[in-house]
Amino acid sequence: MPVRRGHVAPQNTFLDTIIRKFEGQSRKFIIANARVENCAVIYCNDGFCELCGYSRAEVMQRPCTCDFLHGPRTQRRAAAQIAQALLGAEERKVEIAFYRKDGSCFLCLVDVVPVKNEDGAVIMFILNFEVVMEKDMVGSPAHDTNHRGPPTSWLAPGRAKTFRLKLPALLALTARESSVRSGGAGGAGAPGAVVVDVDLTPAAPSSESLALDEVTAMDNHVAGLGPAEERRALVGPGSPPRSAPGQLPSPRAHSLNPDASGSSCSLARTRSRESCASVRRASSADDIEAMRAGVLPPPPRHASTGAMHPLRSGLLNSTSDSDLVRYRTISKIPQITLNFVDLKGDPFLASPTSDREIIAPKIKERTHNVTEKVTQVLSLGADVLPEYKLQAPRIHRWTILHYSPFKAVWDWLILLLVIYTAVFTPYSAAFLLKETEEGPPATECGYACQPLAVVDLIVDIMFIVDILINFRTTYVNANEEVVSHPGRIAVHYFKGWFLIDMVAAIPFDLLI
């Protein structure tokens, strides 16, 4: 008679799926529990143990900040960024110097990925580790590398530091407007667009060049630039800015003055950032001319202004700041037409079709709590990747769950009947059967004279019903998954307890 339990259901295979997918890609990662103190490590794979030199037993239950890997060259700011990422709910990448158990130093890129439950609360953290440099290539500990984003994938490793954006290309926007319009339909740009040429040739750093990471940081200074100062900065030398009595002219307006920039070969870094931020506020060169004239017309309804409409929906549905990093990277690809469009465009503009998908598509409701890094690593669709929660398995109709209350009560009843059979069957065979043979035949009273025979008949009927119930009862397979398919249940029961239950259900007393 089957006594099969499996009270692990309803099970959740999400954690096993993450481990299996990460292991298949030869990654070095740990999984931490966000619900406990210090976000203790609950799993670390073999790749991480080989990377740091510690065994799994030495890593388990330690804080996922990996303070046991810190050393003299470990930056405090990087460690603080990892700790801050564990307090938030967004994906974050941090470069930090770690030390192995043998004392060797290596520069590592740590990717902190939160995993949320159905309520939107962070319950786990996945920390992925990628070695960037070994100890002989690690720089000085005073050099802070965590304020910069990861290198873009479309640049060669040897040319990542030679990417320079020439400031004269930004200063000569109005001069290039006529050349853009003359391109017409034969050019790649839309009317009114501004073409910015980027020099990728390796050259020595000069005062006129600005690194790509500095251009990325310009967006942080746009908020500090007032509207009046932006307007004066875009007017140009024809209309000098008016300053109040006793007030000095704005240095932001002076930063885009061609006369002032041409007199000296070098520009201050602050002026460069502010000038680029001011130019980015204009949607095209037409807006710059309109600002000089004193009238700013409404933005025209053409394809170039609607190019950012799908980007707005993608940004609203993005799951991490990696989408913004990807957008900034692609927006700086050289030799393309940049349409400086305000994100607050007309909502009635139709979304044009684009061959290049900048932001990841909208994630469906079932995966809105899973970050983009987890979705990318697992390579699963929205119909396959579940949320991290207890999910009731989908069972067929008329199927009994093996952990249901009805099955528990039924098993206790069958257990009592088995005990009765084990006690009274030998007793009936030894004593009652002998008395029946010696006594007179009682054929007239039937079952009324033999109450134990009636009980034995009921017990046999219950055993037959138990066999039928076992054909529709779920079970737990070797992978700790609840199986509810009727065919698989029948095959599993035939290979197991079916023969024993059938022999126990045969009414031998009635056959004798």
Rank of each mutant, 00 (worst) to 15 (best):
P2T: 06
P2Y: 15
R4T: 09
G6N: 15
H7E: 14
P10S: 14
N12A: 15
T13N: 09
F14Y: 07
L15A: 07
D16S: 15
T17S: 07
T17Y: 12
T17I: 07
R20L: 06
K21D: 12
E23G: 06
E23A: 05
G24H: 10
R27M: 09
R27W: 10
K28F: 09
K28D: 05
I30P: 01
N33L: 06
V36P: 06
A40V: 11
I42K: 01
Y43S: 01
Y43V: 01
Y43T: 01
C44D: 01
D46S: 06
G47N: 12
F48C: 01
C49M: 06
E50I: 05
L51E: 07
Y54F: 14
A57L: 07
V59W: 01
C64S: 09
T65F: 05
D67E: 13
D67Q: 15
F68N: 01
P72D: 06
Q75I: 01
A78D: 12
A78I: 01
A79T: 07
L86A: 01
R92F: 01
R92W: 03
K93W: 12
V94S: 04
E95T: 08
I96Y: 01
Y99M: 01
G103D: 06
G103H: 04
G103A: 07
S104V: 07
F106C: 01
V112Q: 01
V112L: 09
P114D: 01
V115S: 03
N117I: 12
N117Q: 13
G120L: 14
G120P: 07
G120K: 09
V122A: 14
V122S: 11
V122F: 03
M124H: 08
L127E: 01
F129D: 01
V131E: 15
E134N: 13
K135P: 07
D136W: 14
P141M: 14
P141Q: 15
A142Y: 05
T145P: 13
R148I: 07
G149C: 06
P150V: 13
P150W: 06
P151T: 08
P157W: 12
G158Q: 15
T162F: 12
L165Y: 14
L165K: 06
L165V: 06
K166C: 06
L167M: 15
L167S: 10
T174S: 14
S179T: 09
S182I: 06
G184F: 11
G184R: 11
G187W: 11
G192V: 03
A193M: 15
D197H: 01
V198K: 03
L200N: 05
A203H: 15
P205F: 06
S207H: 15
A211H: 15
E214F: 15
T216N: 09
T216S: 14
N220G: 08
V222L: 11
A223G: 08
A223K: 14
G224F: 15
G226M: 06
A228Q: 03
P240H: 15
P240R: 07
R242P: 11
R242D: 04
S243V: 05
A244S: 05
G246C: 10
P251V: 11
H254F: 15
L256N: 07
G262S: 15
S263M: 04
S266F: 07
L267M: 07
A268C: 05
R269W: 07
R269Q: 04
T270S: 11
R280A: 14
R280G: 10
A282P: 07
S284I: 12
A285Q: 05
D286W: 04
D286T: 06
I288K: 07
A290S: 05
M291R: 15
R292Q: 14
A293H: 07
L296F: 11
P297Q: 08
P299R: 08
R301C: 12
R301N: 09
S304P: 15
G306C: 12
G306E: 12
A307S: 14
H309C: 12
P310Q: 07
R312P: 14
S313G: 12
G314S: 09
L315H: 14
L315K: 07
D323E: 14
V325Y: 08
Y327N: 12
T329E: 07
I333Y: 09
I333S: 11
P334H: 04
T337P: 05
F340M: 15
G345K: 14
D346Y: 05
D346S: 14
P347S: 05
L349I: 10
T353I: 14
I358H: 11
I363S: 08
I363G: 05
E365Q: 13
R366C: 04
N369K: 15
V370P: 07
S379Y: 06
G381N: 07
A382T: 01
P386G: 13
